[in-house]
C-alpha cells in the first residue's frame, strides 16, 4: 500500500520456505544491505516451537522514512521456496505484486492472475553452480534485479562480511546470486 509514495523508497517483502533453505539468511543480508545504504530497515523472523524442515518465514521492510509497522499484511513481494509457503502466502500478496517462485520445488498451480510471477528453478541452478544450499541466493538475485531495492554491490559487501576469508563459500554464493540476476532480467 505504501508503494505509491512518490520518489521516496518504501519496500517490503516476505520470504518463506522450509527451515534450512536459508530464508532468514537472505532476509538479514537484504536488511543489512539496506542499512549500509542509509535506509531504515526492519527484519522480523517467524518464530515458534519449530524445527529444521518445518516452515519458516521472515519479513523485511526497507524505507527512506521511519518505519511504522514492521508487520506486513499484504506484502509488495513474496519469495516462496516451497508448496506449503505458497499456500500460506499467495492470497496475501498485494495486487500487481511480485511473486518469486522456486519452480524446482513448487508444483502447485497459482490461483491468482493479478500478480507478476517470476519462476526460477532455484534448486536446479544451485546444483549447476555446484552447491545445492545456495538456492536462496539465486532467489535473492532475482528479487534484487527486478525490484532494485538495494544496489547488488551492497549484497556482495554483505556476503564478504559474512564469509570473511572462506573464499570457496563466498564465490559460490556470488555465482548463485548472479545466476538469479540474469534469470530475472
Amino acid at each position: 500500500m505504501e508503494k505509491t509514495a512518490k520518489k521516496s523508497l518504501y519496500a517490503n517483502v516476505i520470504m518463506a520456505g522450509f527451515g534450512g533453505q536459508g530464508l532468514m539468511f537472505i532476509g538479514k543480508l537484504l536488511a543489512y544491505s539496506g542499512m549500509k545504504n542509509g535506509k531504515h530497515v526492519t527484519w522480523i523472523p517467524s518464530y515458534g516451537p519449530e524445527m529444521r524442515g518445518g516452515t519458516a518465514n521472515c519479513t523485511v521492510v526497507i524505507s527512506d522514512e521511519e518505519i511504522g509497522s514492521p508487520v506486513i499484511t499484504s506484502p509488495q513481494a513474496l519469495i516462496i521456496m516451497n508448496n506449503p509457503s505458497l499456500e500460506a502466502f499467495e492470497s496475501r500478496l498485494e495486487p500487481e505484486g511480485f511473486l518469486f517462485l522456486n519452480s524446482s520445488l513448487i508444483t502447485q498451480k497459482i490461483a491468482r492472475n493479478d500478480i507478476d510471477i517470476i519462476s526460477i528453478p532455484a534448486n536446479d541452478i544451485a546444483l549447476e553452480v555446484g552447491e545445492r544450499r545456495v538456492a536462496n541466493m539465486v532467489m535473492l538475485g532475482a528479487y534484487i534485479e527486478r525490484t532494485k531495492v538495494v544496489p547488488k554491490e551492497s549484497i556482495y559487501d554483505g556476503l564478504k562480511g559474512f564469509f570473511g576469508d572462506k573464499v570457496k563459500f563466498l564465490d559460490v554464493n556470488i555465482k548463485a546470486f548472479e545466476r538469479g540476476i540474469s534469470h530475472s532480467e
Binding site: 536488511a31 526492519t42 527484519w43 522480523i44 518464530y47
Partner: peptide, 10 residues
C-alpha cells in the same frame, strides 16, 4: 514484547 525481542533494526 516478543516482536521487539525477535525483530532486528539498526
Amino acid at each position: 514484547d516478543g516482536n521487539m525481542g525477535q525483530m532486528m533494526e539498526p
